[in-house]
Design a protein around this nucleic acid. Structure first.
Lengths: 146, 146
DNA sequence: AGAATCCCGATCATTTTAGTCGAGAAAATG
DNA sequence: CATTTTCTCGACTAAAATGATCGGGATTCT
């Protein structure tokens, strides 16, 4: 798989928060239901995401999570990059590009291609903000005329 | 990791065969040495690749593997796609794009992005042939003037 | 006080990945 | 035809990543 389930959950969760941006905290259970994500797993994910600064949380009655930036200021790439880093490890990198992983010290014939791949991937990711996704959503399911 | 070790091995092995295209069969052990790939694992990989039609093999004394098409007619994308399919399973696909994996039947706001990602990825992969890699290699390590 | 909710670390099951092994079959060589 | 070389093939294994789940604790609101 190109992208793990967990990262997709993270994106969908943040997207759900973007949907309700400015409306106060949303409960994990609501997000889980709306986005069809296993509740306890989502707890773990959102808790992790809090450390990224994209989301804020509030405990107790009427608590929940909310997006801490405007939807147009959160790009998919930001989320992916954050979810990629494991603890204090360096981010999940493509092989051969990193000197450690390539038996030829990143000087093999393949490495320019890996770099191109990496770039074009993040070109898409960084070029897609939560606001863009909201616009797509609205286009697909237009708000009913009152 | 964006790409598994195994796929990288597959690419490097085919690249090595491309290097010696038209020079008769190359032994697995030679490829393994040249490309720093565990021998027994490479056996498995090449054996698998044989079924793709990119490579031919010959057994016994003076046997080995060779590329069965011109280097310019084998793209990285072909190799990746082949290595992606597991047995009779459908190819390794990005999530949400396939209707099975998306709880919203591939109709969520994310899916257009996944499609874009997939496209730009294979735009690079399909746009890179073994011949291109050979040219890069030659550029990096120019043949010594005799 | 009590209910609602997030917080956090531990734990676990499954799948994927990476790699190994042994025995066998084909081809060339002498 | 015996021997050597080399691929062939299926089974096997160890380790890591992935996808969760759980229990109990800490906050906050009413």
């Amino acid at each position: 798989m190109l992208i793990t389930q967990k990262k997709q959950y993270a994106l969908r969760a943040i997207f759900e928060l973007a949907k309700h941006f400015g409306q106060g905290p949303i409960k994990v259970s609501d997000i889980a239901r709306a986005q069809a994500i296993p509740l306890r797993f989502l707890e773990v994910i959102l808790n992790q995401l809090k450390k990224s600064g994209f989301v804020d949380s509030k405990r107790g009655y009427q608590g929940g999570y909310e997006l801490s930036r405007k939807p147009k200021d959160v790009a998919v790439g930001d989320v992916i990059r954050f979810m990629d880093k494991r603890g204090d490890q360096p981010p999940d990198c493509i092989a051969c590009v990193s000197r450690d992983n390539c038996p030829f010290g990143g000087e093999c014939a393949l490495s320019p291609m890996w770099e191109k791949v990496w770039e074009s991937l993040f070109c898409v990711y960084d070029g897609t903000t939560m606001q863009d996704l909201l616009d797509i959503e609205r286009e697909k399911h237009p708000a009913p005329v009152q």
